[in-house]
């Protein structure tokens, strides 16, 4: 049986992890590779590296990081942040990334999704969508949720699927950082209307939130950052709790 995935997300700036990390056993708290290895050993199903640096050397630094992660980590990982061309994706996949995630570049140039799918296949193209609910309507936002577009979340998600993306990573800006739970109503609508896997992101605060997003939100995977980095939730404990709630997980 296909299991529900738990995905820690690592924010990366200039090749180093950004958000505070509370792992006493880390030799180097800023080294993404060491952190990734620990997550792989402690039950993470997949990892996401989100690059938020804005320097000239960004491309090369990220490509180097991907190579170092691929060398050490024996579970799949996705890379995102600032990816805007076929060439960007080519080098990241070549260096060992399993999937890439595109966001703003797909909104600005939807044809990019088709081009990437044609060259690399649906299975490695994730489209990340940040959206905020405004007066009842879910509006797609860019630049980490700062800039609103005119796109409706569900219309855009459908288009993303039709253009061939293999997966959608949906972050609710209303829930992100609140630790109040995931946007389960919107997630369930996405999961029902679309026929590709949906990753839930934004709002994880406790273990019950994960159970809720898999059951009420019908999510295929759940992504979180700080609850894992600060050890508020241990992945192994989380998976045992999910199993007790009859949610299939890899233990």
């Amino acid at each position: 049986m296909l299991t529900k995935r738990i995905i820690p997300c690592l924010d990366i700036k200039n090749g180093r992890t950004v958000k505070g990390i509370n792992f006493v056993d880390l030799r180097d708290a800023g080294d993404p590779v060491e952190l990734a290895e620990i997550y792989a050993k402690t039950g993470a199903d997949e990892l996401v590296f989100l690059d938020i640096s804005a320097t000239e050397e960004r491309r090369r630094t990220l490509a180097d990081l991907v190579l170092r992660v691929a060398e050490k980590v024996n579970i799949p990982f996705t890379v995102g942040g600032g990816i805007s061309s076929v060439e960007d994706v080519d080098i990241l996949l070549h260096n060992g990334a399993d999937k890439v995630s595109i966001n703003s570049s797909a909104v600005k140039n939807p044809q990019l999704i088709n081009d990437l799918v044609a060259k690399f296949g649906s299975q490695c193209i994730v489209v990340a969508i940040d959206a905020k609910q405004i007066d009842g309507e879910w509006i797609v936002h860019l630049v980490g949720g700062k800039v609103p577009t005119t796109l409706n979340l569900f219309t855009w998600a459908k288009e993303v699927e039709e253009r061939g993306a293999g997966e959608i990573l949906f972050t609710s800006m209303n829930h992100d950082g609140t630790k109040d739970g995931f946007a389960n109503e919107a997630l369930a609508k996405l999961s029902t209307e679309l026929n590709i896997p949906i990753i839930a992101s934004g709002g994880a605060g406790n273990m019950q939130h994960f159970t809720d997003t898999f059951i009420e939100g019908k999510a295929d995977a759940a992504l979180a950052a700080s609850v894992f980095h600060f050890k508020e939730i241990e992945i192994k404990d989380l998976k045992e709790e999910l199993k007790r709630n009859n949610i299939p997980v890899r233990l």
Binding site: M1, L2, R5, E46, G166, E167, D220, A221
Partner: peptide, 10 residues
């Protein structure tokens, strides 16, 4: 079923 299948199966 959702296609592609992505993840861990038995």
């Amino acid at each position: 079923v959702k296609v592609p299948q992505i993840g861990w199966n038995q």
